[in-house]
Design a protein around this nucleic acid. Sequence first.
DNA 1: GCCGCCATTATTGTCATACTTATTCGACTG
DNA 2: CAGTCGAATAAGTATGACAATAATGGCGGC
Lengths: 256, 256
Amino acid sequence: MDRSGGRARHSGDLIAALSGRNLAHNLHSDVLWDLGFAIVSGQYAQGSILPPDTELLDQFRVSRTVLREALKTLAAKGLIEARARIGTRVLPRNRWNLFDADVLAWHFELGPEVSFLQSLAEVRIGIEIEAAALAAERRTEEQAKLLMAAVDRMASARTPEEFARHDLEFHKAVADASANPFMASISALVEMALTAAFTISSPVNEPEALTQTVAVHRAIAQAIVDKSSQGAREAMRIAIAEGFARAAGRMESVDP
Amino acid sequence: MDRSGGRARHSGDLIAALSGRNLAHNLHSDVLWDLGFAIVSGQYAQGSILPPDTELLDQFRVSRTVLREALKTLAAKGLIEARARIGTRVLPRNRWNLFDADVLAWHFELGPEVSFLQSLAEVRIGIEIEAAALAAERRTEEQAKLLMAAVDRMASARTPEEFARHDLEFHKAVADASANPFMASISALVEMALTAAFTISSPVNEPEALTQTVAVHRAIAQAIVDKSSQGAREAMRIAIAEGFARAAGRMESVDP
DNA sequence: GCCGCCATTATTGTCATACTTATTCGACTG
DNA sequence: CAGTCGAATAAGTATGACAATAATGGCGGC
């Protein structure tokens, strides 16, 4: 059969693997990722109509069941909308659920542009600043300890992956301490942003950058421990802005 | 056949109808909403296992195709995860995509609690404050006009629905002017928050509240027109906080 | 000759059933 | 007692037929 025994895996798998998701590898997810990426990358333009079922069926060499489940998944994420006799239309981007982990991953798969990273940093600033402020008001003693511990682990990280993991852990702890379910739900966003940023440039390789990054994160933790919401806000803003600036700077110097 | 020709529609349909979505009514979406609501309402606890396919099949009296597509949709929204030999597990809430319009709608369907509205207001503050600030920096003349026009329409609204529609239009215009795709993508959230808030209490019925609300929104628009990002931030915070406070106050006085 | 209605037809939606694969649990064996 | 192998169970996949829906073009009436 021609199910192409060794279709090259997507680069996005690196991100997925790092974040411990996407363990299963079934046909449906193959089709899903191919189509999802094709749409996000503009291969199928917004507002255009996808090829009809029969054609896609032929293209992917899978059963109708598999194809339709993949399409339903895309529909659930707001990328497409199917209507009888019309076809399956690619929705305009403002209907896409950009906060979905997969949709985000597809964006990163075609080389994250600086402008995209910037947009991401902007929402993160909005959300995480509030999360930090709320955490400062509501954190328990337990949560305070966890935060400090995460910072310590960041400081002693030896590899970029290790650093990224503890950084993520820190931001999740902040979201958790905010006692706002939306903040926790957003961590997919943070995850992507962090892994992307560290794929481009990890502070681990630059001693002074590492010191700096750890210091800022410690400032956030300290402000939360001190129940200073304003302090937490300011420190968080700096942390995100610096992270983005480092990644952006690196990208521009490499890729004029 | 027993496909229960007249299953009572969900109350959430009010919200869906107001927002112009969910036009299609196919079997799949019926099952989806039933299951989605059951999960969100805690009828199937987090971490528990749903009944196996065969049982659900029997319960809903639909084909396997329909059931499985509904489950795939739920999986796409992060509510469940299927594994062979184990069953379909309800994921912990922090894996749910709370920014998904449907997931949000299911939350509102079981009577929005004050704490939930508050969480919603908190993220909105985080996101929309940044959106307003960015809009102030980047708005075009065109967008500035649209903003002002939206405020005028809010001021002259006669019915709660009309007011809500123009209010939403205003917030969308701000997101649009921010030139950040994530901000636009979040409007489902705003939509829900606004329709929910106005279902509880519309300023239209209280003259001084109306004047107040319009004034705050005009302040946001003016700040954006003046390219004052700090002014836009402060005005937006007030707008959201007041909207929440009014709804919360109303709820408590009615429902001790 | 123009307008509106209806049949055609293309496309998604639904159904039923059979078969395949993965994973756990438990028994069996070394 | 530990490791392996097998059976049972649940999801995953395949296939073919039929139903519902809605553009489109042709037909008939005005």
